[in-house]
C-alpha cells in the first residue's frame, strides 16, 4: 500500500496565512499512517448489489492546530488507477473513460478550504475535490476518535461524504447507477 506515493503540495494558502500571522508553531503537520488508512466508497444501482470499493494508493497530510481548529487543514491525493472493487475485470472497466478515465485523470485530489468544529470530536471540512479534471467544493463530515489534544501521538479520523458524480462528468450508467457515491475514509494520523 502507498508504495509509490505522488508528491502533493498541500494547504499552501493555510500555511502561508499561518506563517504570515507568525503562528507557524501552532499548527503541526501530521502524517497519515497508510497501514491504518482505508479510502472506500459505495454506490447503489438499480437491480444490482451495492458496489463497494477502495483505493489502495493514496497520500495524505493533516495539519492540526489545537488552539484554533479552524486553521487545521487536510489534503488527500488518491491514485484513481488503484481502484479495487474485488474483480480485476470490474476494476479495469472502472478505469476506462466511462468512469475514472485514469489515462487522462490519474489523480483524485481533495484539498480542504475550511474547517468548522461541530463539537470536540466532530468537524465539518469543506474543500475542493478534483475528479476527472473537474474541481468542485464538497463538505465532508469528520469524526475524531477522541478529543484532540497536544499530547496525543495518534488520532483516528473517520471522514464521510457524498460525491455527486454527475457534477464531475462521470455520467455513465445514470440513472441505473446512482449519482451519489458515498465516500468513507478511515485513517490514523501520527503526530510529527
Amino acid at each position: 500500500m502507498a508504495a509509490r506515493v505522488p508528491f502533493l503540495v498541500l494547504a499552501i494558502a493555510t500555511s502561508a496565512a499561518l506563517a504570515a500571522a507568525g503562528a507557524r508553531a501552532a499548527s503541526a503537520a501530521w502524517r497519515i499512517d497508510p497501514a491504518h488508512t482505508s479510502v472506500g466508497f459505495t454506490v447503489d444501482a438499480v437491480g444490482f448489489p451495492r458496489t463497494k470499493g477502495t483505493f489502495s494508493k493514496f497520500f495524505g497530510k493533516i495539519s492540526l492546530d489545537f488552539a484554533r481548529p479552524e486553521r487545521s487543514s487536510v489534503a488527500f491525493r488518491v491514485s484513481a488507477a488503484s481502484v479495487d472493487v474485488g474483480s480485476p475485470s470490474f476494476d479495469d472497466y472502472l478505469r476506462t473513460d466511462a468512469f475514472f478515465d485514469v489515462a487522462k485523470f490519474p489523480d483524485i485530489d481533495f484539498v480542504s478550504t475550511s474547517v468548522r468544529m461541530v463539537d470536540p470530536t466532530h468537524a465539518e471540512v469543506t474543500g475542493d475535490l478534483s475528479l476527472r479534471g473537474v474541481t468542485r467544493p464538497i463538505t465532508i463530515e469528520v469524526a475524531v476518535d477522541r478529543p484532540p489534544s497536544r499530547d496525543a501521538r495518534r488520532l483516528g479520523f473517520t471522514a464521510t461524504g457524498s460525491i455527486p458524480r454527475l457534477a464531475y462528468g462521470m455520467n455513465a450508467g445514470f440513472p441505473a447507477i446512482s449519482n451519489d457515491v458515498v465516500l468513507t475514509v478511515t485513517t490514523a494520523a501520527i503526530a510529527p
Binding site: F48, P49, G86, S87, S89, F90, Y93
Partner: peptide
C-alpha cells in the same frame, strides 16, 4: 449472487 464484483464478472 449478491456481491457486485462476482455479479459483474458473471454478467459478462
Amino acid at each position: 449472487v449478491d456481491d457486485a464484483a462476482g455479479k459483474f464478472d458473471l454478467y459478462q
